[in-house]
Nucleic acid binder design. Structure first.
Lengths: 227, 227
DNA sequence: CCGTGTCAGTGATAATGTTACAAAACTAAG
DNA sequence: CTTAGTTTTGTAACATTATCACTGACACGG
C-alpha cells in the first residue's frame, strides 16, 4: 500500500505512471509497495517463480546466465524506470525465471503483485506501451548478445567493452579481469591474456583492479575490425 | 480484403481469431490479405522496414543472423499459427528488422498492415494474449540460444541437434553438413570433423546428405555431458 | 611482520575457428 | 554411357579460444 503523495513522487521518476488512468492509479496505490535491496542481492535465481514485478526506481540490475563450471554471461541490465521482461514473460505465461538477476547497486523498486500487473497490461494503454517498449529494448539487447557471441572475436569484444566502460570512467576503468570474463561469457585467463597483448601493443596500461586506455584510436580500430 | 467465408476457414487454422471481438473481425476482413510465398523466399532482411505482420497459416520460417564471412546462426523458427515477434517488435517501435527471415517451405500467411495490428493489440484481449504468448516463446528460445552458444561444446550441440532431428526422421536424417553449421552458428569443417569422430565411435553412419544414428544411447550420453 | 584471501600471469593441452584445397558423389547435357 | 559442371564431403595446417593447473603479486587485518 502506497500513499497518494508517494505515488506523486514516483510519477517524477517513472513518467509513464502519470499516463495511467485513474482506476489503475488506485490499483497501484492499493497493491503496490516499495522495496530497497542492498548491492549484491540476488533478486531472481534460475527457476524462481515470479509472483511480483519490480519497476526500478533507482539502481541497476544485471541479468545473466550461469553455465556449468561457474562461467557466466550477462544478458542485459535493467536501469531506472525499466523492469524485467523475463519477469513479465514469466508472469504472463506462468513459467519460472530462466536466468539470474542480481542488484549491482543498492536498488529501490516499485513492487506490484503479478495479477495487478496482468490487469494493468490489459486495461491501461500506458502500461501496454511501457511493456511493449521494454520488450523491444530487450529483444534488441538479446539479439545483439547472440550475434556477438556467435560471430565476434574475443579481442574485439574486449576492446568494445573497454571503450564502452571508459565513457563512464574516462580516466581509468576500475574492474577485475574476472568481472570482464563474467560479462562476456569467457574465462578470466582469456581476458588476462588478451589484455596483456593490448598492453604490449601499448593500447592500455594494466594494474591491479584497473585498466587505463592509452591509445584510444588503435583500440577503436580493433572494434571496427580494420586491424 | 478477405471474404467472410475465408475468415471462417482461417478460424480453423488460427483458433485465436475466433476469440476476437466483432469490430476487430471486421477490421481483419477489411484490411487483411492472404499471401503465399515459395520455399526459399527471403521475407525480411537485416534492416528491412516492417509495415506488415504475417501470421503463418501453413509452412515454416527460419529466422537467423548473418555474420561476416557468411556464417549464420538460427535464432528461432516460426510455425503454423505463429508470427514473428521481431516483426512485432519492429512495428511497435518503428525500428527495422534485426535479422533475416526465410521461408523454409512454401508458406501461406495472413498479412495485416502494421497499424491494424497495433489497433488489434490495443483493443482486443485475444490478440494481446496471442502476442504476449509469442513473446514468451521467443524469449525462451533466444535465451536458450545464448546459453547454448556461450556454454556448450560443439559435440554436445551436434549430438542434441541430431537427436532432435531424428524425431521427425527416425530412419535417417537427410541434411548437409553446411545446413547443420548454419543452424548452430559454426563452420562446415567443424561439423564434418565432429561427425567423422562420431562415426569412428560408431554412433552414426555418414553418407552424402544423410546421417543415420546407430547408437542412440551413446549419443544421448554426449548431450547429458556424462561422457 | 605474517597469514589469508583476492587478483593477475603463464604454460600446457584440447577444442574450435579459419583458410585452402582436393576428392567424391551427384546431375544434366550430349 | 560419358563428360563436364555442381554440390557435398574430407582433410591438412595454422590461429584463436577453452580449460586446467599452477605461481606470483598485492592488500588488509591481526
Amino acid at each position: 500500500m502506497l500513499s497518494e503523495e508517494k505515488y506523486g513522487l514516483l510519477e517524477n521518476e517513472l513518467p509513464f505512471l502519470g499516463l495511467a488512468n485513474n482506476d489503475m492509479k488506485q490499483k497501484i496505490i492499493q497493491h503496490g509497495s516499495l522495496a530497497k535491496v542492498p548491492k549484491g542481492t540476488v533478486i531472481f535465481d534460475e527457476g524462481s517463480e515470479c509472483n511480483t514485478l519490480a519497476v526500478i526506481i533507482t539502481g541497476k540490475i544485471r541479468v545473466y546466465k550461469l553455465g556449468e563450471s561457474g562461467k557466466e554471461i550477462t544478458i542485459y541490465r535493467i536501469y531506472e524506470g525499466e523492469s524485467c521482461i523475463l519477469t513479465i514473460s514469466a508472469i504472463l505465461s506462468n513459467l519460472t525465471f530462466p536466468a539470474t538477476a542480481v542488484a549491482e547497486e543498492e536498488t529501490e523498486a516499485l513492487i506490484l503483485p503479478a495479477d495487478v500487473f496482468k490487469e494493468l497490461v490489459n486495461k491501461d494503454e500506458a502500461w501496454r506501451n511501457y511493456t511493449f517498449g521494454l520488450v523491444n529494448k530487450r529483444l534488441a539487447n538479446i539479439i545483439t548478445v547472440v550475434e556477438t557471441v556467435a560471430f565476434k572475436r574475443m579481442d574485439e569484444r574486449i576492446a568494445e567493452f573497454l571503450l564502452k566502460k571508459s565513457e563512464a570512467e574516462p580516466d581509468g576503468i576500475n574492474i577485475t579481469h574476472q568481472k570482464i570474463a563474467d560479462e562476456l561469457g569467457t574465462h578470466r585467463e582469456v581476458i588476462s591474456r588478451i589484455l596483456k597483448e593490448f598492453e604490449k601493443l601499448e593500447l592500455i596500461k594494466l594494474s591491479r583492479n584497473r585498466i587505463e586506455i592509452i591509445n584510444r584510436n588503435e583500440l577503436l580500430s580493433k572494434v571496427k575490425h580494420i586491424a
